[in-house]
C-alpha cells in the first residue's frame, strides 16, 4: 500500500516537473511578445501614421516596410515555383538517385548558416553589379525559403494515403495529371502551410541581407537593381546607434515585424485546425 503511494507521489512530481519545464521553455516567447508590444506601442501611437509611411528623417520606417514587402514578394516569385516542383519531384521519384539526394540536400539547406548565403550572393551578384540591390536580397531570401517550401510540399504529398494514388492512376490518368490535378490539390493545405512558413521565415531574416540589400531608409527606391531597406536590417542598424531615439524606433519597428509575422503565422495555425480527415 505504501509502495503504491510512493509511486503515485513520484508520478505527480514527475508530471509537475515536466509541466514546469514546458512553461519555462515557452516563457521567453511570451516575454518577447510582451516586451515588444510594451515598448513598441508607445512609439507607434505617438507618431501614428508617420511611423508607417515616413522616411527615417521624418521618424518613420516606411522604406523598410516597403523594402521587406518587395524582398518577400520577389523572393517568393523566384523561390516558390522552384521549391514546389522540387518537393513534388522528391515525392514522385523517391527511388531515383537525384530524388534520394534531394531529400538529404534539402535537410542540409534547411539548417545552412544563413549568413553564408548572404556572402555567396554578395560574391555572385553584388560585386559584379557594383551595387547592393533588392534583387540580390531577394535571391538570398529565396535560397533560404526554398528548402522550407520544398520540405513541406514533400511532406504534404507523402501524407496522402496510398489509396488515393491508386485511385488516380486507376482512372487512366497520366502521371502529370494524376500528380498535378488530383494529388497536389489534395495536399494543397499542407503545401500552402509550407509556403506561408517559408514566407514568414524570410520576412524576419537579417543575416542574408547584411551584404546584399544595402539598406535604404531615407528614400523610396523604385527598381529591383537599387538598394532597398528591410525591417529586420533596420532594427539591427538602429540598435547599434548610441541615440536613445533610435532605440525607440527599433522597438516600434520590432512591433511592426512581429505583427507581420503573426499576420502570416496565425492564419496558418487556424487553417491547420480545420483539416478534416
Amino acid at each position: 500500500m505504501s509502495g503504491y503511494n510512493v509511486r503515485k507521489l513520484k508520478e505527480k512530481l514527475f508530471l509537475f516537473l515536466i509541466g514546469a519545464l514546458t512553461v519555462l521553455m515557452f516563457s521567453p516567447l511570451f516575454h518577447i511578445i510582451y516586451s515588444v508590444f510594451n515598448n513598441g506601442i508607445h512609439v507607434i501611437l505617438s507618431r501614428r501614421i508617420t511611423f508607417i509611411t515616413g522616411r527615417l528623417s521624418d521618424g518613420g520606417i516606411g522604406p523598410a516596410i516597403i523594402g521587406t514587402f518587395i524582398l518577400v514578394f520577389l523572393a517568393s516569385l523566384i523561390g516558390l515555383p522552384v521549391a514546389f516542383l522540387v518537393g513534388v519531384y522528391a515525392y514522385e521519384y523517391p527511388e531515383s538517385t537525384l530524388g534520394k539526394a534531394t531529400k538529404s540536400l534539402l535537410q542540409i539547406m534547411l539548417e545552412f548558416p544563413t549568413i553564408l548565403v548572404g556572402v555567396f550572393i554578395m560574391q555572385m551578384l553584388v560585386v559584379p553589379m557594383g551595387t547592393y540591390s533588392a534583387l540580390a536580397g531577394a535571391l538570398s531570401l529565396a535560397i533560404i525559403m526554398m528548402p522550407y517550401v520544398a520540405v513541406y510540399t514533400h511532406e504534404a504529398m507523402r501524407q496522402i494515403p496510398f489509396e488515393y494514388r491508386d485511385a488516380a492512376f486507376s482512372l487512366g490518368l497520366t502521371r502529370v495529371k494524376a500528380v498535378f490535378r488530383v494529388l497536389v490539390p489534395m495536399a494543397k493545405r499542407g503545401i500552402l502551410t509550407g509556403v506561408l512558413i517559408g514566407i514568414a521565415k524570410v520576412a524576419g531574416e537579417t543575416a542574408p541581407l547584411l551584404f546584399t540589400v544595402g539598406g535604404s531608409y531615407q528614400t523610396y527606391q523604385i527598381g529591383i537593381t537599387k538598394p532597398v531597406g528591410a525591417i529586420p536590417l533596420l532594427i539591427y542598424t538602429l540598435i547599434q546607434s548610441p541615440a536613445k531615439e533610435h532605440h525607440e524606433m527599433a522597438w516600434g519597428a520590432s512591433l511592426i515585424l512581429l505583427l507581420i509575422f503573426l499576420g502570416i503565422f496565425i492564419p496558418v495555425r487556424l487553417s491547420l485546425r480545420e483539416v478534416k480527415v
Binding site: P161, E163, Y164, A167, A168, V182, M186, V277
Partner: peptide, 8 residues
Amino acid sequence: FQYPNPFP
C-alpha cells in the same frame, strides 16, 4: 478498392 477511396 478495398478501402472506399473517393477523393476527399
